[in-house]
Computed example of a mutant assay.
Amino acid sequence: MKTTTVRVASASIAAMLSAAPALAQDMAALVEGARAEGMLTTIALPHDWCGYGDVIAGFREMYPFLEINELNPDAGSADELEAIRANMNNTGPQAPDVIDVGLAFGPAAQAEGLITPYMVSTWDTIPEGARDAEGHWYGDYYGVMSFIVNTDLVDNIPTSFEDLLKPEYVGQVALAGDPRASNQAILAVMAAGMARGAEPGAAAAQAGLEFFAELNASGNFVPVIGRTGTLAQGTTPILIQWDYNALSARDTLAGNPPVEVVVPSDAVLAGVYVQAISAYAPHPNAARLWMEYLYSDEGQLGWLAGYCHPIRFNDLAARGVIPQDMMDALPPAESYAAAVFPTLDQVNANRDAVVAGWDSVVGANVE
């Protein structure tokens, strides 16, 4: 994980409050409400994902009166929604206040009545296409699908999805999640389908499932959830995951073993994640305060320090508040030039097809 520390939110929030007395009253009430609640419960936020360790530390430093209760850091997006369903009538520590899920899961949660609307103070700087008009969910960051390769064990680095089918990669390729529940893995299937020329959505899902069926039949696919540890140990020396997770893992490993991060040449799929507040949040004020922090300059730059492109990136860049060292640490801009941002309908169609078809088409129980 990058260790760059950014401390700008105190000033930016202070300026925001002084410039808008009505907002100051709202923020003051929000802070006091959160103080009375005393806790924020998060879920599925591993500290090495998108710089979340430092983001959580920054929030804790700003609001030391709040206990941060972190549930199941390795949960997938589907698990997060299930946690809300399972705790609708539970105000105890197992009920999440907030969720961070793949784009397709935001509208699904909204349709089911699992999340409640809230518009942060920086709402107008979130692109319209990346937010629900009523504030039920809103984009937070994005990255592109990549490969991270343990070069101690892999001599020839694959540069495309099609390369992964080569016999030299037997027992080496894994996903960073269960494609029946993990947004990251579900979209990796779509990227594989796009690499074969299929349009994003149901077509790419089918083509991607067929790709992974071939990968599994060839013996190249390893049916475990790949992590930095399995990459380093050699259980999964080639891991398909978001670029920000791969780059963070590269920093964590610090050359032991050496790794290389590759954006595949045959499909550059960009994936947006979204934030939302549970409609059954035991700590609604703390949840809103958390959102205000995440969408402040500090929260956004905290994600950028973890190699994620924050949703307010264009606004931050236009105002010149992004430190140069952060810009220099990102992959070259040309790596993202061909990035495809699928529509919400395409993401939903892909999710449904992958979740429904993985067992029957691929037949690999990833766990």
Rank of each mutant, 00 (worst) to 15 (best):
V8W: 01
A15W: 03
L23P: 03
A34N: 09
T42P: 05
A44L: 10
D54L: 12
V55C: 07
M62A: 13
Y63M: 04
D74E: 12
D74P: 00
A75T: 05
A75F: 14
L81F: 08
E82S: 02
A83K: 11
N89D: 15
D97Y: 14
V101S: 05
G129E: 13
D132T: 10
D140F: 05
V144D: 06
V149K: 04
T151V: 15
T151M: 06
I157S: 08
T159N: 10
F161H: 14
E162G: 01
D163E: 05
G177W: 03
D178E: 08
P179W: 00
N183I: 00
A185T: 10
G193L: 00
E214P: 02
L215K: 08
F221Y: 12
P223Y: 03
V224T: 14
V224P: 05
R227M: 06
R227G: 15
G229V: 10
T230Y: 02
P237F: 01
I238F: 03
D243C: 02
N256C: 00
P264Y: 02
A267N: 06
A270R: 14
S278C: 09
Y280A: 07
P284G: 02
L289A: 07
W303T: 11
A305P: 10
A305K: 10
G306K: 11
P310M: 03
R312C: 14
L316E: 09
D328T: 13
A337N: 01
A339R: 12
F341Y: 14
T343Q: 06
V362A: 06
